[in-house]
Amino acid sequence: MLELFLNFGLPFLLLLVAYFVGTMLEKGHFRSIRKREGEYAKFPVVTFDTMPDDWSASSGTLVSGSVVISLDYFKRVIAGLRAIVGGRIKTYEPLLDRARREAMLRMIEDARRDGYDAIFNVRLETSRLANSRGDGKGTAGVEMLAFGTAVKFASRFARTQ
């Protein structure tokens, strides 16, 4: 009986726990992301590689934000099943999305903390970290990095409308 539980019950229980805790954490994180994105809505962040013409900057520096995320047990199992038939892996999409948005928010927070007014030439990078064990098991993570050049405007009204 115990053996049966260890073989089938435990993985199933783990899957259930991973699903509920994972979903809860994800919802909480999305709430926090949306709230902060709302707060920073007026902070200009652009991907242009030169400054927009109406910006007049007095100084600038490099700012960055990053997040390392892991794939939870439930999502990996679902993705494993999905890989058999192919197609869209819906469980991974929100995970990567929130990590990338979190990295962007950290970059913005970094710039605001030092009193910068805007960020341009924003670049986003994704890199996969190696598994800690050779057999392909062990912890693997994905790093999302956002970086750009933060500028201080020459005067408070430098940004003409």
């Binding site: 990053s66 892991s70 939870d72 439930f74 995970l95 970290l129 912890t139």
Partner: peptide, 14 residues
């Protein structure tokens, strides 16, 4: 490794 069960950010790695 523990965090890998529920997913989310690995703050130590960040």
């Amino acid at each position: 490794g523990l965090k890998n069960i529920v997913g989310g950010e690995l703050a130590g790695y960040t």
